[in-house]
């Protein structure tokens, strides 16, 4: 029997008064795949992620995560998934180890001590386990946030700009680590990012969002080929600015 996909979104819509933040989004993220969710500010990425996490109730449409309907059975799904974002903090006054223990309890992780030790080893946290989370550098905070997101061995990981504000070296370390982890664990990942190089490197498939809709999708190479571009960044700009490759060339030559 084919396992349920990691995410199945059908006609997902979110309306705030007259504003349509997400408009009829439909996609199926298969198990074990890494997909990117791209779009400019206000495209609807964060709203979409909030609905996938059950933080926000859709105005219309349906989401199932790992076979669980998020409208009726979200806690069963939440136990099997996790989330990381630099915009949601961990308690600053608690040490790294205490923070991880809190989430090991909340996710009912068996043998929590062993799991935390494994994560500390894998994400190079051993030296900072006793330090308050508020005293960490941006890179250290990102690694701790990843450890929190992996504490329950999630089958689905939602990452919102995981390398935002990191220096290139640390960002590259995190990307390499995520590649390795995904290959080893078979976990599905949905990655929202503004870093096009990161998306090209990590994602096999990309959903391009604009004004709450998916306006295009495909592998980074397919999208670049379809738009006549060399990279995803130019595709992103074409979509954001409603321009074609030819139009862009004219614009560039007359600039």
């Amino acid at each position: 029997m084919t396992p349920d996909p990691a995410i199945r979104a059908e006609g997902l819509t979110k309306r705030y008064g007259d504003t349509l933040a997400v408009d009829g989004l439909s996609f199926v993220l298969p198990r074990g795949a890494t997909w990117g969710l791209l779009g400019g500010n206000g495209a609807g990425k964060s709203t979409t992620i909030a609905m996938l996490l059950g933080l926000l109730v859709p105005s219309a449409g349906r989401v199932t995560v790992l076979g669980h309907d998020m409208a009726r059975d979200r806690f069963a799904a939440l136990a099997r998934m996790n989330f990381s974002s630099p915009y949601v903090a961990l308690p600053h006054r608690l040490s790294v180890a205490e923070n991880l223990r809190v989430y090991a309890h909340l996710y009912d992780v068996p043998r929590a001590g062993t799991r935390i030790a494994e994560l500390a080893e894998a994400l190079q946290l051993n030296e900072i386990l006793d330090r308050p989370a508020g005293q960490l550098s941006a890179g250290q905070k990102t690694r701790v946030a990843l450890a929190k997101a992996l504490v329950n061995r999630p089958e689905l990981l939602l990452l919102d700009e995981p390398t935002a504000s990191l220096d290139p070296d640390t960002g590259d370390w995190v990307r390499s680590w995520l590649e390795r982890y995904q290959a080893e664990s078979g976990c599905a990942i949905l990655l929202a990012s503004h870093n096009m190089a990161e998306v090209e490197r990590l994602c096999g498939h990309v959903l391009m969002m604009k004004r709450g809709r998916i306006v295009d999708q495909g592998s980074p190479a397919d999208l670049a080929a379809r738009f006549g571009r060399d990279n995803l960044e130019d595709v992103f700009l074409d979509i954001a600015r409603n321009r074609s490759a030819a139009g862009a060339k004219i614009g560039e030559s007359t600039a």
Binding site: G54, L55, L78, N82, F83, Y103
Partner: peptide, 8 residues
Amino acid sequence: GHIFVSPL
């Protein structure tokens, strides 16, 4: 945000 997306 972390609390509300946990199974609590």
